[in-house]
C-alpha cells in the first residue's frame, strides 16, 4: 500500500502538483488518468523518487520514502518495478540480458536458475523464446513494452509503476498489455500504479481511478462509477470524442427519459434500431 499525503511540486513558479492526497491499495490496479500536462508523470516520478517533491509525504507501507536515508531508499527501490513510457530498455543488450540485468545485479543465483527465471517471465508476458537473443531495436514497440514489463517484474516487485503502458500501441495490443498488468497485479497481490489517458484501459482494468486535473485530484472512484460521475471536468475528459458524447447522451436518455436537443438523426436511428424503441415521442416511448 502506498499513501500520498499533501504532495506538492513546483518547477520554478509553475505549480505542477498542488497538494495531492491518495491511498493506493494492494492487489488493485490504481489508475491515474488526466489530460496531457495534468501532472501524471510528475506525480509518478515523485512517488518513486526520481523527482524530489517540494512538499508532502510518500509512505510505502508506512515508511516515509522521501525523508529516509539513501540505504533505506535503496531497499525500497529494490521492491519497485517500473515500466517507462518509452520502455527504457538497455539498447546495447539483448532482450535476455535486459531481463537478466536485475537478477545479475541483486541475486547470487546460479546462471541456470537466472536463465530459467528469465524464460519464465518471458512466457508470463506472452513472448516467444526466440525473442531472447534479439536486440531491442530488432523488435516492435509492443514487444519492447512487454520486455520492459518482464524486466520490471523479474525480481517479484511489491510495487509496480507503469507510465502510459499503451501509448503508441494499437488498441488490441494495448488491451493485451493492460490485461497482463491486471493479471500480474492480482496474481502477486502487488500495488500497481498505471498512468494513462486511454479510456479503454480505464474501463478494462480500473479498479481504482484517480482523475487529475491541473495538478489536483479532481475525482476518485472505480470503472463502474466513472461514467456516471457528476464531475463536469471528468465528464469532459471521458466524453471527449463525438462518439462518446453520443454515448453520454444515451446515458442521459436512460436516466431522465428525455432526449437531448443536439442528438443527430443518425444516432437517433441507431439507438432506435439497437434498443428496438421509438424515439419520436417525448422520450422513450416504445420498448420490447
Amino acid at each position: 500500500m502506498i499513501e500520498i499525503k499533501n504532495l506538492k511540486k513546483s518547477f520554478g513558479s509553475k505549480e505542477v502538483l498542488k497538494g495531492v492526497n491518495a491511498v493506493l491499495e494492494d492487489g488493485k490496479c490504481n489508475l491515474i488518468i488526466g489530460s496531457s500536462g495534468s501532472g501524471k508523470t510528475v506525480f509518478m516520478k515523485c512517488m518513486v523518487g526520481l523527482i524530489k517533491p517540494t512538499e508532502g509525504e510518500v509512505l510505502y507501507d508506512g515508511k516515509d520514502f522521501i525523508h529516509i536515508s539513501l540505504e533505506e531508499k535503496k531497499e525500497i527501490r529494490k521492491q519497485i518495478g517500473m515500466l517507462f513510457q518509452g520502455s527504457a530498455l538497455f539498447d546495447s543488450q539483448t532482450v535476455g540480458d535486459n531481463i537478466m540485468f536485475p537478477l545479475h545485479m541483486f541475486t547470487n543465483d546460479k546462471l541456470s536458475a537466472k536463465k530459467d527465471r528469465v524464460r519464465e517471465v518471458l512466457k508470463r508476458v506472452n513472448l516467444q523464446e526466440d525473442a531472447y537473443g534479439k536486440f531491442p531495436s530488432e523488435i516492435s514497440g509492443g514487444m519492447q513494452k512487454r520486455v520492459a514489463l518482464a524486466r520490471a517484474i523479474v525480481l517479484n516487485p511489491r510495487y509496480l509503476f507503469c507510465d502510459e503502458p499503451n501509448s503508441g500501441l494499437d488498441p488490441q495490443t494495448s488491451i493485451v498489455i493492460d490485461k497482463l498488468i491486471q493479471e500480474i497485479t492480482q496474481e502477486y497481490d502487488i500495488t500497481t500504479i498505471v498512468n494513462t489517458h486511454d479510456m479503454n484501459s480505464v474501463m478494462e482494468i480500473g479498479d481504482h481511478i484517480i482523475y487529475m486535473h491541473q495538478g489536483e485530484k479532481e475525482w476518485e472512484g472505480n470503472n463502474k462509477d466513472i461514467i456516471f460521475s457528476k464531475s463536469e471536468k471528468l465528464n469532459d475528459f471521458i466524453f471527449a470524442s463525438e462518439f462518446l458524447k453520443d454515448a453520454k447522451n444515451m446515458r442521459n436518455i436512460k436516466e431522465t427519459g428525455e432526449l437531448p436537443d443536439d442528438i443527430s438523426d443518425d444516432i437517433k436511428e441507431a439507438i432506435e434500431e439497437k434498443f428496438n424503441i421509438d424515439l419520436d415521442g417525448d422520450g422513450i416511448v416504445g420498448s420490447e
Binding site: K73, I80, A88, L89, F90, D91
Partner: peptide, 17 residues
C-alpha cells in the same frame, strides 16, 4: 546522453543502482 534521454538512467536508478 542517449541513456539519459531514453530514461535508461532513470530505469537503473529505480532499480536502486
Amino acid at each position: 546522453g542517449n541513456m539519459r534521454v531514453s530514461e535508461q538512467i532513470d530505469a537503473l536508478e529505480i532499480m536502486g543502482i
